[in-house]
């Protein structure tokens, strides 16, 4: 079943490597209210392994992450 949650802010970070993908994620969060949802597209490999782990460490909540047909990942995160 697909997630029914809608992102308030969406960032396509396809092709954006580490650590700039995390920098851009942090900039997006800085403009958002607590409780809002950020949707990200992250590359497979180091990006999907590192970005979710870092945002969890900063207290945000991963609501879902699923791999898309092209191998990238769709991630939904609720801002702390």
């Amino acid at each position: 079943m697909k997630t029914a949650i809608r992102a308030d802010v969406f960032q396509d970070l396809k092709g954006v490597g580490c650590p700039m993908n995390l920098v851009k994620t942090k900039v997006a969060f800085a403009k958002m209210e607590s409780g809002q949802i950020l949707g990200l597209i992250l590359d497979n490999g180091p990006p999907i392994n590192n970005v979710p782990r870092s945002v969890i460490r900063e207290g945000h909540e991963i609501l879902s992450q699923e791999q898309l047909a092209d191998g990238t990942w769709s991630v939904l995160i609720r801002k702390a």
Binding site: L22, V23, K26, V27, F29, A30, E58
Partner: peptide, 17 residues
């Protein structure tokens, strides 16, 4: 600027703010 200051922005105690 995002690239220039990325190592500061990545720090939890500094960040974007």
């Amino acid at each position: 600027q995002l690239e220039r200051y990325s190592r500061h922005i990545l720090l939890d105690d500094v960040g974007v703010a």
